[in-house]
Amino acid sequence: MAQFALWLSDIVAVSVLVFALYFPRHRRRDLVVAYLGVNIGVLAVASSLSAAGGAATGLGLGMALFGVLSIIRLRSTELDQHEVAYYFSALALGILGAWETEQEWRSATLMAVILAVLYVGDHPRLLRQHRRQVIVLDVAIPDHATLVAHLEHTLGSRVHSVSVQRLDLVNDTTVVDVRYRSTPGARPRPAAPPRVEATTPHTPAAVQP
Rank of each mutant, 00 (worst) to 15 (best):
1 M>W: 08
2 A>M: 14
5 A>S: 12
10 D>G: 15
13 A>I: 06
13 A>N: 08
14 V>I: 11
14 V>W: 01
14 V>Y: 00
15 S>H: 02
15 S>I: 04
18 V>L: 10
18 V>S: 04
19 F>I: 13
20 A>H: 10
24 P>W: 05
24 P>K: 11
27 R>P: 08
33 V>G: 01
38 V>F: 08
39 N>V: 00
40 I>W: 01
46 A>D: 00
48 S>I: 10
48 S>T: 12
49 L>T: 01
50 S>M: 07
50 S>H: 05
51 A>R: 04
52 A>N: 03
53 G>Q: 02
54 G>L: 06
58 G>N: 05
60 G>W: 02
64 A>W: 00
68 V>H: 03
68 V>M: 09
69 L>P: 03
71 I>P: 02
71 I>M: 14
73 R>A: 14
73 R>W: 07
75 R>G: 14
77 T>R: 15
78 E>W: 12
79 L>F: 09
82 H>N: 14
83 E>M: 08
83 E>F: 10
84 V>P: 01
86 Y>S: 06
86 Y>P: 02
86 Y>R: 06
88 F>K: 01
89 S>C: 07
90 A>R: 04
92 A>I: 04
94 G>M: 00
94 G>L: 00
94 G>N: 02
94 G>Y: 00
95 I>N: 02
96 L>C: 03
96 L>M: 11
97 G>C: 03
97 G>L: 01
100 E>Y: 00
102 E>Y: 03
103 Q>H: 15
103 Q>I: 13
103 Q>L: 12
111 M>Y: 01
112 A>I: 02
112 A>G: 14
113 V>I: 15
113 V>R: 07
115 L>E: 01
118 L>K: 04
120 V>W: 13
121 G>P: 03
122 D>T: 15
124 P>T: 12
125 R>Y: 11
126 L>R: 15
131 R>T: 08
134 V>Q: 13
135 I>W: 09
137 L>P: 05
141 I>E: 10
143 D>M: 08
143 D>V: 09
145 A>V: 14
145 A>S: 13
146 T>M: 12
148 V>L: 06
150 H>D: 14
151 L>I: 07
152 E>A: 05
153 H>M: 03
156 G>M: 06
157 S>W: 08
157 S>I: 07
157 S>D: 12
158 R>Q: 13
159 V>Y: 04
159 V>M: 05
159 V>A: 04
160 H>L: 14
161 S>G: 09
162 V>R: 06
167 L>M: 04
167 L>E: 10
168 D>N: 13
169 L>D: 11
169 L>Y: 10
170 V>A: 11
170 V>T: 14
171 N>I: 10
171 N>M: 13
171 N>V: 13
172 D>H: 11
172 D>F: 06
177 D>T: 09
184 P>W: 09
185 G>K: 12
186 A>E: 09
197 E>C: 07
201 P>G: 08
202 H>I: 13
203 T>D: 09
203 T>A: 13
207 V>W: 13
207 V>K: 09
208 Q>C: 09
